[in-house]
């Protein structure tokens, strides 16, 4: 006579928590790193590095675009093709270059500023995923990931038995603290 063996829920939970945890490492790093980057949007540009070079040059807005371009390119020693030019106002002239640089000249300040933009490759792509710019398929995948995170947090409550169980105060206070901190921000601050 064979004895019917039941599912060991405790063991299954631990194994699922372990394997889903492995699966979530990559995405968690993407969201965590870009989360820090985007949190400090006011302090830095998480997508681009903007190099600025400033020079004083004496030019007049009565000069032709060709003369202005030549003077600006030689002053800043720029070796790029010009993509477009634009008069923002009678006092501000802009030159856009093929490789993404922009030169802005102020006739009032008699000063030019050349900006060269370089993308922060990894951050830019991480942020793109974090802000869901990819749309469509990424929305579904992000929902699955969010579901997995919910599973990880809830399954953690049933991983350990005994005195270090989250259901006893010795470690249970950590669970309470994790809920109290956001609650303070929601209801008090």
């Amino acid at each position: 006579m064979t004895r019917k063996q039941g599912i060991n829920w405790f063991r299954l939970n631990r194994e699922l928590h372990r394997d889903i945890g492995y699966f979530c490492i990559g995405l968690t790093l993407v969201f965590a790193i870009s989360g820090i980057a985007l949190n400090h949007l006011r302090h830095w540009n998480p997508n681009y590095i903007v190099d600025r070079q400033t020079q004083k040059i004496t030019l007049a807005n009565t000069m032709s675009d060709e003369v202005l371009n030549e003077a600006l390119l030689s002053s800043f020693n720029i070796d790029e093709g010009i993509r477009a030019t634009y008069w923002e106002s009678p006092q501000i002239y802009k030159v856009f270059f093929e490789e993404g640089g922009t030169l802005t000249y102020s006739f009032i300040q008699q000063q030019g500023v050349f900006e060269h933009v370089r993308p922060r490759h990894v951050f830019k792509q991480f942020n793109r995923l974090h802000l869901n710019e990819a749309q469509n398929g990424w929305i579904a995948f992000s929902d699955v990931y969010a579901g997995l995170l919910i599973f990880l947090s809830l399954s953690a409550l049933f991983m350990v038995k005994g005195k270090y169980s989250p259901w006893r105060f010795r470690r249970g206070w950590l669970v309470i603290a994790g809920g109290v901190v956001p609650a303070i921000y929601i209801f008090v601050l």
Partner: peptide, 11 residues
């Protein structure tokens, strides 16, 4: 986030 225009598009 609806659309993200790249800075390199200037010009």
């Amino acid at each position: 986030g609806d659309m993200v225009f790249p800075m390199s598009a200037k010009g």
